[in-house]
Amino acid sequence: MRLQSDRLAAARPYLYLTPTLLVLATFTYLPIARLAEMSLHAPGTGASLGPWIGLSAYQKLFSNPLFWRILGQTFAYVFASVPIAMALGLGLALLLDQPLRGLGLLRALYYAPVVMPTVAVAALALWMFNPNGGLVDYLLHLVGIAPIPWLVDTTWALPTLIVIAVWKNVGYYMVIYLAGLQALPQAVLDAARLDGARPLVRFFTITLPLLRPTTFFIGVVALIGSFQVFDFVNLMTQGGPSNATNVLVYFAYQNGFAYMQLGLAAALSLVMFALVLAILGLVAWTFNR
């Protein structure tokens, strides 16, 4: 009797974990293996796999110049939007980290875009940057700048998407930086002050180094997040004009669902996964040095 109840008690944690692990296994871990399987076989009929084709999907992918272009564009998007949004977020956080009236409201306002659906932001941005009656061009016209073909020009389209992404995400980084700032040891900052360090010196020699863990955290989250960019591309440019805004996830989506090249899409997904791991490793390595 005693033994039986003991065995039952020992099984309890596993019981509690089972539902979560089942879901994660089905939709997160196993799909990685499934992707590998799919990428090594020709597409079959329906859900079944075709014959083994080895690495030819990868060969096809890597020999496609468009893939390399899209890879470059994805990196450009990630490594432009993330640092800009982080820097702006930190700047706002520094300004907002003061005991002044009304800053709570400002904080909330800056955060509002973060809770907006990407679809609504895309709709709004399409309207704001519209070549035909868009408000942005009108405002530029007021200061004497000629209209810019925001989303329809191969040079301008990607930077426009970056601006929109920064607008949407900056509030998120701001709030995390605020938390980081508020957790800083006040005594250290006071000591630096007594040592006669000017505000700018204090920022670069004390505040910024102490914020390292926060910056690391935001960096990781932002990199993973912006690597997955899809919504804006699909809703605003469909990767165009002439693939100027095409990015990895969108390319995989196109391959899988428009061109029915599931093997290629799977290979692409795994390449993305490898890239995410590599970037995480790199970031972790940089910060642990």
Binding site: T26, I32, L35, A47, A252, S269, L280
Partner: peptide, 17 residues
């Protein structure tokens, strides 16, 4: 670190099956 944007092809196939 494994977002749905990476697994979607496989998950789509599973659900389709």
């Amino acid at each position: 670190i494994v977002p749905v944007q990476i697994t979607f092809v496989a998950n789509f196939m599973t659900l389709a099956r």
